[in-house]
Design a binder for these strands. Sequence first.
DNA 1: ACAAAAGTGTTGCCAATACACCCATGC
DNA 2: GCATGGGTGTATTGGCAACACTTTTGT
Lengths: 243, 243
Amino acid sequence: MATKRSAAAARPRSSELDYPRPAVTVDIVVFTIVDADLKVLLVERGLPPFEGCWALPGGFVRVGEGGERGEDLEAAATRELAEETGLPAGSVYLEQLYTFGAAERDPRGRVITVAYYALVRPDLAPFVEGGSDASAARWWSVASEVQPSALAFDHALILDMALERVRGKIDYTNIAFELVPPTFSTAELRAVHEVVKGRAYDPANFRRRLRRMITDGVIVEAPGKRITGRRPAKVYRFARPQG
Amino acid sequence: MATKRSAAAARPRSSELDYPRPAVTVDIVVFTIVDADLKVLLVERGLPPFEGCWALPGGFVRVGEGGERGEDLEAAATRELAEETGLPAGSVYLEQLYTFGAAERDPRGRVITVAYYALVRPDLAPFVEGGSDASAARWWSVASEVQPSALAFDHALILDMALERVRGKIDYTNIAFELVPPTFSTAELRAVHEVVKGRAYDPANFRRRLRRMITDGVIVEAPGKRITGRRPAKVYRFARPQG
DNA sequence: ACAAAAGTGTTGCCAATACACCCATGC
DNA sequence: GCATGGGTGTATTGGCAACACTTTTGT
């Protein structure tokens, strides 16, 4: 296994880098909203530790040997996300969350994890279960199904922080558009805000917010209507992606 | 140098962890405000790469061998901060910023750095230069002295992100109190906001913000006054730390 | 007295909220 | 027609910016 020694040890001269290193993983909190319910993707662990427990999808950052550097951290997250969801890279919003490095957070040894969170549009969510990766991945209702204490490692803490981040950023960024289909009605967008924030919004006032976004050019009217069984609703789309 | 091979290679059984690992460092963007000027602490690099360049203070996360786990990530940042500034731990505000993991960011090999930012009160800033650590650390004016292109590694990018973070959080958090002495006048606190945001604030309106903070119990009047050569100003202190 | 800075009052603007109300549509 | 949910109008509140104004002090 000499070939498996660290890149630092393979270097000709001893240097600052020539010390024990932690393992580094990326873990991803993948959210979606289906049926007005916030869901998070969890995978069942097939190996100890925490065998049988549910955990956040993730994996080790690939680091090359010798002169090879391996993949960018962001690329590791993108790769894991694609592997675990089966969704093409670029179709899912991904953002770095926080890095968790408590010395004892993994019983196997020193593992530092860089956590990301991802937002999957509801129209893509059904394709995730039964995705390419064999590992049994499943959407869990954050409010009614996830048992924080039953999650592996410190993943409950990571999930908490991801929730907090999304709840905070939805008010002053455009991340809500990552949780609706490409075109959406005001009610659909409002439902996203309501589910994330856990409170009701006045439909009339929410509509005004939306109108401001139209005048600001953030969203535009889209062709078609939503047939709801009652009066159909206008649909809009986010202006940025499609220009 | 066989003893210096990575902990992963020394592990008896092959496992998920038994792969090449990146080196992990913490880098800290240490800010202070002196003479109404935002300053950042930089250290001169004594070794290649980037020898002679200025860089953010930082260092490797200590990871034990075998069963030893080493220090928490947060502890590594706290330790580096204390080493580089000479200030006692706990006297400086410290918060994780972002993790930078581009594969080619360090010419020596694969190094992932977890960046933090720190806020040093101006009354402590003079003790930092000529601190305990031998490395020549110096305060640089962010606006007028720092040459982003001259910084080592991707430290210009890290500095940028730290600036953005502080500028964003000063509006809705209490971090401004980490950049004034324990007691402060309204003008002093206002100067902090003005320097960070790079714009002027109306003294009258700023006073009102301050009054709201008094009624909300965030700050309290402190004994003493600021002698400015003109009319002395009342001084206040942040309520949280001292109760 | 005068300059400079602390501190107050007043006004207008903009968002967010609450709530009454109109409108279009499928049944 | 009528219930349902989409969509509009209006009043109120609170924060923030602008700016004229008063107060307090050292020189």
